[in-house]
Design a protein around this nucleic acid. Sequence first.
DNA 1: GGTAGACCTGGACGC
DNA 2: GCGTCCAGGTCTACC
Length: 292
Amino acid sequence: MQLHLPARPPFSLPAVIKSHGWYVLAPFESTDSAGELAYIDRLSSGKVIALNIREVAGGVNVLVEAALTQAEQAEIGRKVRWMLDLDQDFSSFYAIAKDEPKLQSAVAGGKGRILRSPTLFEDVLKTILTTNTLWAATIRMARNLVNQLGDPLPSDPEKRAFPTPESLTAAGEAVLRAETRLGYRAPYVQELAQRVANGELDLEALKSEEIPTPELRKRLLALKGIGGYAAANLLMLLGRYDFIPVDSWALKMVSLEWHDGKAVGPAEVEAAFERWGPWKGLAYWLWDWKAQ
DNA sequence: GGTAGACCTGGACGC
DNA sequence: GCGTCCAGGTCTACC
């Protein structure tokens, strides 16, 4: 089955894929040369499918090698639109960024969309996996989660979907810590999964545009394992760019860009992008750093 | 509100 | 091969 989804121009699938490192975290797959994106998804019916996404004129085509009901097609359409942020309008950002030399490649490349997972649950969990560790370890933890606890793709059981909150809850903290190698993050992931599984926490509701950003940030910070950096990162994924995800890399880049390599703190990072107002986080994200 | 120390893993390094 | 050091954010206790 093939599904066509239009995208608001300008649109570039490779730009979305490379918007950050998510595309290398299971169950995403991407072949750099082809500029295509694959994702193993578990539909709400429990069916596990492989989504193969490629850019075509006016948007993307989604290929699925499985028979699908109308409802399942609609679900896939909703998810892919969200994952690739197909409807987002960046024209007001481009309008103010076009005169900034450090954002020229972003404007010319139609950048701005940030790849995200189908569910906020998956993005929150993966964000926790990025904290206080090296990127290689984040990749390993995500792969372990999928390989050990995800449902298999029937046509290729080596490939698996992202685990459900229920399967994570059933696995238990000890398994997550020792076998999935999440370390001290295990209780955070366990608590998150448990609260989502029992209905106490509705993360999907946080995708609503009606929640003011400060309130949204407050709710994200209330999650165990989510601090200032992680909350800002998640706000970016939710299309809110008022905060900068300040990590050690950000401190280093700002230090080299504007302070001759002298150590800086989060305040200097925020100050460097203050003039971009509600697009602050995106300007930081797309900045053409001289130290890169 | 600010700060120090613990948390945990894995890579780099020296022996 | 083994031991040590270090990087990476967040949490908790304490001031």
